[in-house]
Deep mutational scan, measured.
Amino acid sequence: MAAGGDHGSPDSYRSPLASRYASPEMCFVFSDRYKFRTWRQLWLWLAEAEQTLGLPITDEQIQEMKSNLENIDFKMAAEEEKRLRHDVMAHVHTFGHCCPKAAGIIHLGATSCYVGDNTDLIILRNALDLLLPKLARVISRLADFAKERASLPTLGFTHFQPAQLTTVGKRCCLWIQDLCMDLQNLKRVRDDLRFRGVKGTTGTQASFLQLFEGDDHKVEQLDKMVTEKAGFKRAFIITGQTYTRKVDIEVLSVLASLGASVHKICTDIRLLANLKEMEEPFEKQQIGSSAMPYKRNPMRSERCCSLARHLMTLVMDPLQTASVQWFERTLDDSANRRICLAEAFLTADTILNTLQNISEGLVVYPKVIERRIRQELPFMATENIIMAMVKAGGSRQDCHEKIRVLSQQAASVVKQEGGDNDLIERIQVDAYFSPIHSQLDHLLDPSSFTGRASQQVQRFLEEEVYPLLKPYESVMKVKAELCL
Rank of each mutant, 00 (worst) to 15 (best):
F433H: 15
L130M: 10
S9H: 14
G419C: 04
Q184K: 04
V247M: 05
K82I: 08
I176P: 07
R196C: 11
A381L: 09
S151F: 02
A127T: 07
L108Y: 12
Y472G: 02
P318E: 12
G54F: 06
S301H: 03
K276F: 14
E79V: 03
N421T: 05
T244V: 02
W43R: 06
F433L: 10
A388I: 12
P366A: 03
A49E: 03
Y365I: 08
R459C: 12
C98I: 10
K35Q: 09
A230L: 01
A47G: 07
F195E: 09
A322M: 12
K295C: 01
R188W: 01
E462G: 09
G451E: 01
M225I: 12
G109L: 01
S253H: 08
T111E: 01
E213V: 02
L331S: 01
A410I: 00
L186F: 07
R141S: 11
A260N: 14
A77W: 14
C173P: 02
A18Y: 08
D445W: 00
S359N: 02
Q184N: 03
Y472P: 08
I358P: 08
L275W: 05
T313S: 04
E25P: 00
Q241L: 09
T313D: 11
G231N: 14
D178N: 01
N118F: 00
E148S: 04
S395I: 01
L69I: 07
S359D: 00
M387E: 13
G451R: 13
F345N: 13
G104H: 15
C304L: 10
K233T: 01
E50A: 02
L108V: 02
R149V: 02
V475D: 01
L183Y: 12
R296D: 15
L55N: 09
D192T: 13
F28M: 12
R33M: 10
L121D: 08
P56Y: 08
D11L: 07
R300L: 04
R20W: 13
P446Y: 15
L352F: 02
V390E: 15
P298K: 14
K391Q: 08
Q241H: 00
S23G: 15
P10R: 11
L211A: 00
V475A: 13
C113S: 10
E213Y: 00
C98A: 03
C399M: 08
F30C: 02
L209G: 08
L444K: 13
M225E: 08
H91F: 13
E250C: 14
